[in-house]
């Protein structure tokens, strides 16, 4: 196990709980970043301990704060429900139980200002750290603690080689890489983590690669 100095002297965040508040902000923020656009509508479903202690921990405000683009240390998280309302963002909450999920799980079904639909499920796993468990129909497992690329492409031979060639050519070291598909010959999500942020031109190259449908960049946050 490896620990960062600022896991111990941090994170700097709004209280009262690193898992139920800071982690919840990060889940909302991850959703906002993955959508790449401002959120217009969102249905937020809280599971397990998140559902049971949401009000007292401000988990509801935290998730919405993240959806607004706030970070865990932004004091605006306190008033995020009012801010969202003023901006005309429509938020609904629901509670559910699912024993297979981590006890601190959130599902977000969102629609962006341009009408793009997106859903994700993530868990807050302690100390403000999160794991994204699904994006749209893909089941994944990514912690968002590195600079991350989420690449959706076709399930055909040679794709990984094509993607890693772009990365190698641009001089990026891949620190972690996973690949998941929904079904054979369907779509695949490849998640590539790097030590340093990937520049715009490399992201464009990846987007132009044949049979790549979508490239989303999530900066380390």
């Amino acid at each position: 196990m490896s620990v960062s100095l600022f896991d111990i002297l941090g994170p700097i965040t709004v209280g009262p709980s690193s898992s139920h508040t800071a982690g919840a902000v990060r889940i909302g923020l991850a959703c906002r970043m993955l959508m790449g656009e401002e959120v217009k509508k969102a249905k937020v479903t809280l599971y397990g301990s998140f559902a049971e202690t949401a009000i007292g921990h401000g988990t509801d405000k935290a998730v919405v704060g993240g959806l607004l683009g706030h970070r865990p240390a932004d004091i605006e998280n306190r008033d995020s429900l009012d801010i969202a309302k003023k901006l005309g963002m429509q938020i609904t909450f629901a509670e559910a139980q699912e024993s297979r999920y981590h006890p601190n799980t959130v599902k977000i079904e969102a629609e962006s200002v341009t009408g793009k639909k997106f859903k994700m499920r993530a868990a807050s796993v302690g100390g403000g750290s999160i794991v994204i468990n699904s994006i749209n129909e893909f089941t994944i497992e990514t912690p968002c603690n590195q600079d991350t690329l989420v690449i959706i492409h076709l399930d055909i031979p040679g794709m990984l080689s094509a993607l890693t060639t772009v990365m190698a050519w641009a001089g990026y070291n891949i620190s972690n890489m996973t690949l998941k598909r929904t079904k054979r010959n369907g779509e695949v999500v490849s998640i590539i983590e790097t030590d340093v942020p990937v520049a715009d031109d490399t992201v464009s190259m990846l987007r132009m690669t044949k049979n790549v449908n979508q490239v989303i960049r999530i900066p380390r946050f």
């Binding site: 111990i8 994170p11 709004v14 209280g15 009262p16 709980s17 690193s18 306190r78």
Partner: peptide, 11 residues
């Protein structure tokens, strides 16, 4: 919900 340093945790 004030801003704190979770050193080592918020609690």
């Amino acid at each position: 919900m004030g801003i704190i340093v979770a050193a080592p945790t918020a609690g």
